[in-house]
Every structure is written in structure tokens, then in C-alpha cells.
């Protein structure tokens, strides 16, 4: 009996720890972005060498502060260690594998997307028409929870393979 009680208590506390805690918006988004690297497949041609870094680019204003770097510290995509880079100039984005643009300005988004051309870069944004403009994953907030929409055809067009698991939890897939 006592054993049972102890087990229950420990079980509950352990569960309590494992339960989702409230979190700041940016850390949840950072972890989602980290998760995108897990559920999207990049063609090997996107990397210059077998151990070249996987670059997450933050274009324009960086809402994450140090959170993005903390989230992916020590993590890899396959054999590629993840690096985080900030960019002011879209010209440098060509080296990225994933680009996040926090700006809601259509002009900024358009500039960013145009600079990537048909490279295998996963684009993540916030602007309402992000996916319509050719972006791939747009974050949105509903009832204090983070949701995202996926533009699967845009990803497919540049040979990014998005797993069905990610597509299933997306709010809208087009």
C-alpha cells in the first residue's frame, strides 16, 4: 500500500514536470523552429560538405534574443551542427537552410523570398499573407497557443520534404 502511495506521488510529480509549462511566445516559437528541422527533410545537395553547418537565419529584427541559439545549442540536423545567424542584408541568406522573418511588412517578406530564389530553404514567417506570397510556414496565435499554416507546395517545389506528422498538426495546409 505504502509502495503504491509512494509510486503515485512520484509518478504524479514526475508527470507534473513533464507537463507543458507556460512559456514565452518566443521560446515556443524557437522550439517549433527546432522541431521543423526534425520534421522536414533537406536534400543533401543543400549542404556544401557532409559536416557543413545547418544554418538558421533570422532576417531583420530578431525577436528571439539568445533564445534561438540556446534552443539549438549542441543540436544537429543529421551530421550538420545547427548554427544561428542574423542577417540584415538578404544577400547573405543564400547560405541558410531555414530563414525566419519576424517582420509583418509585405515589402520585407517579398525581398527575403525573392533573394532565396529556388534554393532549398525553409521559410518561416509571421505576416498574414506570408504563405500566399510564397512563404512556407506561417506562425499564428490562437487563444494564446501557437499554431502554424503550411504551404506544402512551395516547400515541395524546392525539394523540401515535409513529414506528414507536421502537416497533420498544421492549422491549414495549402
Amino acid at each position: 500500500m505504502r509502495l503504491l502511495v509512494t509510486w503515485l506521488l512520484i509518478g504524479v510529480l514526475a508527470q507534473a514536470r513533464a507537463q507543458p509549462m507556460p512559456a514565452s511566445e518566443v521560446s515556443v516559437k524557437a522550439v517549433f523552429i527546432y522541431n521543423f528541422t526534425r520534421f522536414v527533410e533537406w536534400p543533401e545537395t543543400a549542404f556544401s560538405s557532409p559536416d557543413a553547418p545547418f544554418v538558421i537565419g533570422i532576417f531583420g529584427a530578431d525577436p528571439f534574443g539568445s533564445v534561438m541559439a540556446e534552443t539549438v545549442a549542441g543540436e544537429k540536423v543529421g551530421n550538420h551542427p545547427i548554427h544561428v545567424q542574423r542577417y540584415r542584408d538578404p544577400a547573405g541568406l543564400a547560405d541558410c537552410h531555414l530563414v525566419y522573418v519576424g517582420s509583418r511588412e509585405a515589402e520585407v517578406v517579398r525581398e527575403m523570398l525573392a533573394s532565396l530564389g529556388r534554393r532549398a530553404v525553409l521559410t518561416v514567417g509571421e505576416a498574414v499573407p506570408f504563405n500566399r506570397m510564397g512563404g512556407m510556414i506561417r506562425f499564428l496565435t490562437r487563444n494564446n497557443k501557437i499554431r502554424f499554416e503550411i504551404n506544402a507546395s512551395a516547400a515541395r517545389a524546392v525539394q523540401l520534404n515535409i513529414s506528414s506528422k507536421l502537416l497533420n498538426v498544421a492549422e491549414a495546409v495549402n
Binding site: P22, V28, N35, F39, K145, I146, L166
Partner: peptide, 11 residues
């Protein structure tokens, strides 16, 4: 992923 979707964010 599903659990992450359930996390409420504090604005």
C-alpha cells in the same frame, strides 16, 4: 509536437 501545440504562451 502535439504537446507543444497545447502550450499556452504568456504575452
Amino acid at each position: 509536437l502535439e504537446q507543444l501545440m497545447d502550450v499556452e504562451v504568456t504575452l
